[in-house]
């Protein structure tokens, strides 16, 4: 059969090309543009080469923020994943109570980030917040605006409250997909509760758990709104995560060059981690079949 050659077909991809250009390529290139130049306003640019990247890589400030960021992500993963699995295991499997649980657990997921931040900001206040006031009345020294540990505990608990449901819902979906016969066979084989979890439930949940870990990692690694609303990155820089620091640098200090270099590296770190996750997941799947 004769192949039809019609270069006009390129027009068909034009809308997508335009969309992607405006939504991703052009903004990204703007950032790249800033990262290799210096400007003093008036649309005057001076070539800076890799100077900003070098400066950022040498800056203690960025490494500190990255350290805090990683610590935060690891803590919330270490809490949310086991807790989510635990909640899913203890949820009613079907019927009215199951639906009720699902609805209640979805609620935190539906609340906008800044509202979550505001809720916890007020909740934790020593003067009017239920939590802060109670702790204070009990004689516990809790003040997230002054105490680093209290600030960390507050934002970690807030994130756990906000996002454990997501892990639990995914784990629950994984559990629901296990046919009854598996549990029946385990009973007949006299498997202990731990063995049922280890050899039936965990393997069947592995796929969704990987997705849960990936989602939670990426989301927590990019967290901005909630800690910004609660602590504003303080006390001092104690809860200044990468994105908070980035905004301070770009909009607070108007250091557009370093901020652009910073955000490009930030972007590359997330890309790298996601790629590692993806590779691990696909090789695991390949090993399965």
């Amino acid at each position: 059969m004769e192949k039809t050659v019609n270069q006009k077909a390129w027009f068909l991809v034009l809308p997508v090309l335009l969309l992607v250009a405006f939504s991703a390529v052009i903004p990204l290139m703007t950032v790249v543009n800033y990262s290799v130049q210096d400007t003093f306003g008036n649309n005057q640019f001076f070539w800076a080469g890799l100077e900003w990247f070098e400066e950022m890589l040498a800056s203690e400030r960025m490494w500190d923020a990255l350290g805090r960021q990683l610590l935060f992500s690891l803590i919330i993963l270490a809490i949310e994943v086991p807790l989510g699995i635990f909640v899913a295991l203890n949820m009613p499997k079907s019927g009215f109570w199951s639906s009720l649980c699902l609805v209640l657990m979805s609620l935190p997921l539906l609340i906008p980030w800044n509202v979550v931040g505001t809720i916890w900001q007020i909740f934790g206040r020593v003067d009017i917040g239920l939590l802060g006031y109670t702790l204070d009345a009990l004689g516990i020294n809790y003040n997230y605006t002054q105490d680093t540990l209290a600030a960390w505990i507050t934002i970690v608990v807030m994130d756990v409250w906000h996002w454990t449901s997501l892990v639990a819902l995914l784990a629950f979906a994984g559990l629901k997909s296990i046919p009854d016969a598996y549990y029946q066979a385990a009973k007949i084989d006299q498997a202990s509760r731990w063995k049922v979890f280890r050899y039936i439930e965990l393997p069947k949940m592995a796929g969704v758990l990987m997705i849960a870990v990936l989602l939670r990692f990426m989301d927590s690694f990019m967290i901005y709104t909630e800690p910004f609303v609660v602590t504003g990155g303080g006390p001092g820089n104690a809860t200044t995560m990468l994105s908070i620091d980035l905004v301070k640098m770009a909009l607070g200090q108007f250091d557009l060059g370093p901020a652009a270099a910073f955000s490009l590296m930030y972007f590359l770190v997330i890309l790298l981690v996601s790629w590692v996750f993806y590779t691990v997941m696909t090789t695991l799947e390949k090993r399965e079949t």
């Binding site: 046919p179 016969a181 598996y182 029946q184 066979a185 009973k187 007949i188 006299q190 050899y199 039936i200 393997p203 069947k204 399965e288």
Partner: peptide, 20 residues
């Protein structure tokens, strides 16, 4: 309970412990 009855049962669809 099932465990006390000491019976064995084979189901319609295969039940194996995948990771073992």
């Amino acid at each position: 309970p099932t465990a006390e009855r000491n019976i064995a049962q084979v189901f319609q669809f295969p039940v194996v412990y995948d990771t073992m």
